[in-house]
Design a protein around this nucleic acid. Structure first.
Lengths: 200, 200, 200, 200
DNA sequence: GATGAATGAGAGTTCATTCAT
DNA sequence: TATGAATGAACTCTCATTCAT
């Protein structure tokens, strides 16, 4: 009963999602060496179809990274009116790490650094985190000299640390998130060296 | 006082050093995609010379990673009889990060994971860090449930975090080292979630 | 009656044939040192296209050798119901040598020794020759102690012998085939030294 | 007590022999892919020393092939005054095949085709075989239309035929030499097709 | 005379991308 | 629109050969 024109679009949309999912898995397993051919095979489409959806490999990577940024932005915004700002910030970092936990995809960020759409989504995420941190700071949950940029830069650290082990326990990153979050609180700690970085 | 009998070997040894330095720079700038051809060009030697010194690209990477591990082991050992164990641990993490600061080379570790020489050097570094942490723990400078493995895994975190900015201030990593080190101390902090990881 | 649905495949199939022909010529002229680049150039396609059709150089060689085996098997089978078994055997050896005559490709056999498809085709050829020889033996056309394996091993000898001359007359091999075939008949000859070899 | 000048020459001569032996073994095991480096290692000398004795790889191969030709020439000449010319010819072919038996080195002949020293030695061998065959022909031991060139071209055939089996019995070639030699006699056989080849 | 470090052309192979069907 | 065959540049690695020591 769907109109043919729509069914084609639906197919295309479905292919796009299949491709993004396949690409993410493939990048997770093979790192930057994941090939377009393997991604296409995993998604069950032909190589040419990948390029119909994403003109270059970089564009595909940008879509993945941008998707993550957008999802995290939604999470951050959803936590903005939480009653406990400190707990909200911890919750945000936890959810963010859970998304990364399966495999470290941080290397994709470097590749998509120049993409303007990604830059826009990254800015939005940064802004949302900024609000989250501001509330936490005002409530005394984190040091007064911690900024949203600091938190943004530290998101991946727990998963990344655990990833240095060949077969890390699936929840090991929670241990390092706890350590780092304690470092953000650190009641009575001395002021941090180096000024907070400015956002580009 | 120089040994003239080794003049040719001296040339070869010099080339080896030139190659290691060139490779490190090239990997830093280009990531895993650094090519042997570019490394050779930067070192001022022919492509074939790279393979005379390092039979495969992986062997070259292993030499770089192993060299870093060995250097850090020496640093850790030199700090073992320091009067202030807590300061010694911080000093170690600082020197380690300084070595990484130029650029993030952590992706090389993944490649050389299977190399037995690297594994041996990594084990030695891990053991030295273990001693450093044990002393710091006994002196009350760090949480009682922090292990050498924890510290080993966190070495790269400060530099890695700063690296998410396109043009980070050269000493920005010191800010994140301070945060993480505070998390390691965290007097009166609750016990960490997740047990400390075992070393493979 | 042609299948238009396969027009693209037809192009690919044509390239495959072009490549096999070019490879055969190139191997004949240059021996084992024939390069994929030269083969591609002679076939009028890009280097990458060679690898689309044959994943490795060995696979290409296996295709050539297997093709020859299959063609010879067809010849042998076609001669099985000939009225004169001795003449049929001679005809088979003649046709086989004609196929080799252009140039000696026997060195390719060594390379493809490990390939299972080639092994299968070689076994079939061996079996067909076995039948041909059995009939010739029963009819008294060849010595009683000659086996199919003997004949299989001697197929290339006439062409190979002629090939030791720099510019052999194009039909010189017929002279050596006549000599060897006479050796197979040799009425009243003494029994052969060494038992007939077993087929692996 | 040896003069230094002579001891050096003796060393050099010894190295030359070591190299030829090592090269022959290496070519037998690895075929044309035998590398100068492996030959040098097997001979226990440095790569540069190989090139002091043989300016190019082709020169080394020429020395091997030429050595075989010279040795066979000596054998042929030694058999020239044998009482039974037919047996002498068979003995020559047997000794020649025994030299090849260890491994097939015929592919080296192709490479050294252009070398003038090899050509000279090949001509001498051809001439000696010519005398051997002439006597056998006159004595009625071989067909009247068999020439020395025919025999020259057929020398390798027995070993080559046996070599098509993966693990031929060490004396299997004797079986094929018997067949071919029977073909050379073949009393009452029809005249051979194709005229005898002329020697270049 | 012997050594082995250096050279550099060229090998097989991979892969993002294009384009005819 | 989707396909997958074709492309060609780039890669790692090999090896005969040269030459400073």
């Amino acid at each position: 009963m769907t109109t043919p024109a729509r069914s084609l679009r639906a197919d295309a949309a479905r292919n796009r999602e299949l491709l993004l999912a396949a690409a993410e898995e493939e990048f997770a397993e093979r790192g930057m060496d994941a090939s377009i051919a393997d991604i296409a095979r995993r998604a069950g489409v032909a190589k040419g179809t990948v390029f119909r959806h994403f003109a270059t490999k970089e564009e595909l990577i940008a879509a993945i990274v941008g998707g993550h940024f957008a999802a995290l932005t939604a999470v951050a915004r959803g936590l903005l009116d939480s009653a406990d700002p400190g707990a909200a910030l911890l919750e945000f970092l936890t959810v963010a790490a859970e998304g990364l936990q399966q495999q470290d995809l941080t290397f994709l960020q470097t590749v998509s650094e120049g993409d303007s759409m990604v830059a826009e989504l990254r800015n939005r995420l940064h802004a949302s985190i900024g609000s989250l941190v501001e509330r936490a700071r005002e409530s005394g949950a984190v040091r007064p000299d911690i900024t949203g940029t600091d938190v943004f830069l530290l998101i991946c650290a727990p998963v990344h640390a655990a990833g240095f082990l060949p077969d890390p326990a699936p929840d090991l990153w929670r241990r390092y998130l706890a350590i780092i979050f304690d470092g953000l609180r650190a009641e009575g700690a001395a002021p941090l060296p180096e000024p907070a970085p400015s956002w580009p």
